[in-house]
């Protein structure tokens, strides 16, 4: 069933004291490969979700209407000052159960663990993005805003066409940092059985004796993802640079 090349590889590794025997078990290999895919899917879903929610939150934070700004501020502070794992426990073990009950039976609940992880971790990222964008929006020079008003833009149009584009550029380095944190936070999915790479590794190493082997792979994998994320961030920074704005030494 397993091809000879793989068996050879497992044997060679074993002679060096490296235990990768799980590769010969079809279901463990599937769980593991699925782990890489799920982590990448989580990252790919969470980045746009956190950015969109972050912009909406930033808009609310800087709104003049108190009923909009105050709840946004409360949400941001609550999210930034509590552990993601605790938020996930509250959402997944608490809120999710309440939803199930109110929908009349657990079978009716449409929200899965993947959804909760994206929601909780995505909004956690969004709260950090929002703070960065708010600082960016506040850094937009008054003269620019006056000019925009003079051109007949209303408040929302100014936000959309003047403040956000400029704030995005100012906040970009911080946002990229937040995204790196976000990538790392996907590992909390392992606590609620989302099949990302940490979860997959736990499922394997609890049946075998190869924690170290799997751990090295996880660390290299995350280093690689975050290298890509920060490189794209750097490229965007250069690409979007506006002469004279947010010049950093």
């Amino acid at each position: 069933m397993a091809d000879p090349l793989l068996l050879d590889l497992v044997k060679t590794a074993k002679s060096y004291g490296i235990n990768v025997g799980f590769l010969t078990s079809p279901h463990e290999r599937d769980i593991w490969l699925e782990g890489f895919r799920t982590t990448l899917t989580l990252v790919a879903t969470m980045i746009p979700v956190s950015l969109a929610a972050g912009m909406a939150l930033a808009a609310a934070l800087t709104a003049r209407q108190r009923w909009l700004a105050l709840p946004a501020r409360v949400f941001v502070e609550l999210t930034r000052n509590t552990p993601t794992l605790v938020q996930l426990s509250c959402a997944f073990l608490g809120l999710n159960m309440l939803i199930s009950q109110s929908l009349g039976g657990a079978g009716q609940n449409p929200f899965g663990a993947f959804f909760w992880v994206v929601l909780v971790v995505g909004l956690h990222g969004a709260a950090y993005h929002a703070e960065a964008l708010r600082a960016g929006i506040e850094a937009v020079p008054d003269t620019t805003l006056e000019a925009a008003r003079a051109l007949g833009f209303n408040r929302l149009e100014i936000l959309r066409w003047v403040e956000l584009p400029l704030a995005l550029r100012i906040a970009l380095p911080t946002i990229v940092n937040n995204l790196v944190t976000l990538v790392k936070l996907t590992t909390v999915g392992s606590a609620v059985a989302v099949g990302e790479i940490t979860y997959a590794s736990i499922m394997i190493w609890t049946q075998r004796d190869n924690v170290v082997e799997l751990m090295v792979v996880i660390l290299v994998f995350f280093s690689a993802i975050n290298l890509v994320v920060s490189q794209i961030g750097l490229w965007l920074e250069r690409r979007l640079a506006v002469p004279g704005l947010g010049v950093r030494s």
Binding site: V180, K184, L185, T186, T187, V188, S190, T198, I202, W205, V211, V212, M215, I218, L219, F222, S223, N226, L227
Partner: peptide, 17 residues
């Protein structure tokens, strides 16, 4: 390496290894 490593994974690594 360690700026990019998830905290959870490092805690697993130190606890088990």
């Amino acid at each position: 390496i360690f700026r990019n490593a998830p905290h959870l994974v490092l805690i697993f690594a130190t606890t088990y290894a």
